[in-house]
Simulated scan of single mutants.
Amino acid sequence: MRVTEPGYVPPSEDYWMALMNQGEFAAFPAPEAEPEEIWEGLGMGRGHPIPMPGLWDLEGGEPDWRRARALLESGQPLTVTVVGYNRGGLIVQAERLPRGFIPASHLLQFPNALNGPSRKSALARYVGQTLQVRVIEVDEVGGRFVLSERLAHQDEARIEALLAELRPGEVRRGTVTKVAAFGAFVDLGGFEGLLHISEMSWGRVTDPGAIVQVGQELEVLVLDVLPEERRVQLSLKRLKPDPWETVAQRYQVGQVVEGVVTTVTHFGAFVRLEEGVEGLLHVSEFGDAGGDHPRESVREGQCLRVRIVSIDPAARRIGLSRRGLH
Rank of each mutant, 00 (worst) to 15 (best):
6 P>Q: 10
143 G>L: 06
70 A>L: 14
163 L>Y: 03
288 D>K: 14
145 F>Y: 11
208 P>L: 06
244 W>V: 11
235 S>Y: 08
169 G>K: 10
200 M>S: 06
24 E>F: 11
135 V>A: 07
81 T>Y: 00
241 P>D: 08
253 V>G: 10
307 R>A: 09
27 A>W: 11
193 G>L: 07
27 A>T: 13
239 L>C: 02
318 I>T: 04
130 T>S: 15
228 E>R: 14
58 L>D: 04
39 W>V: 12
71 L>G: 02
172 R>T: 04
16 W>M: 11
188 L>S: 06
141 V>E: 15
134 R>M: 12
7 G>I: 08
121 S>T: 06
221 L>E: 12
90 L>Y: 01
146 V>L: 02
33 A>N: 14
86 N>P: 00
210 A>G: 09
189 G>H: 07
268 G>I: 10
297 S>K: 03
233 Q>C: 00
205 V>P: 09
207 D>E: 15
320 L>I: 04
168 P>Y: 08
313 P>C: 11
149 E>S: 08
163 L>G: 05
128 G>W: 00
180 A>K: 05
112 N>H: 01
117 P>H: 05
90 L>G: 00
238 R>W: 06
109 Q>W: 11
287 G>F: 11
161 A>L: 12
35 P>M: 07
155 D>R: 13
116 G>H: 00
75 G>N: 11
231 R>H: 00
226 L>P: 00
96 R>M: 06
186 V>I: 15
135 V>P: 05
219 E>G: 10
23 G>A: 09
302 Q>D: 13
56 W>Y: 13
29 P>Q: 11
146 V>E: 02
156 E>R: 15
229 E>V: 07
325 L>T: 10
131 L>G: 01
200 M>D: 05
137 E>N: 07
305 R>L: 07
89 G>K: 01
146 V>S: 06
106 H>L: 08
39 W>Y: 11
67 R>G: 05
234 L>F: 09
245 E>Q: 15
129 Q>G: 00
27 A>F: 12
169 G>F: 08
127 V>T: 14
37 E>A: 13
15 Y>I: 06
201 S>F: 08
19 L>Y: 13
45 G>F: 03
209 G>K: 06
96 R>E: 15
227 P>E: 02
98 P>M: 07
264 V>D: 01
150 R>D: 03
237 K>D: 04
322 R>L: 15
188 L>E: 10
197 I>E: 05
223 L>T: 06
241 P>I: 01
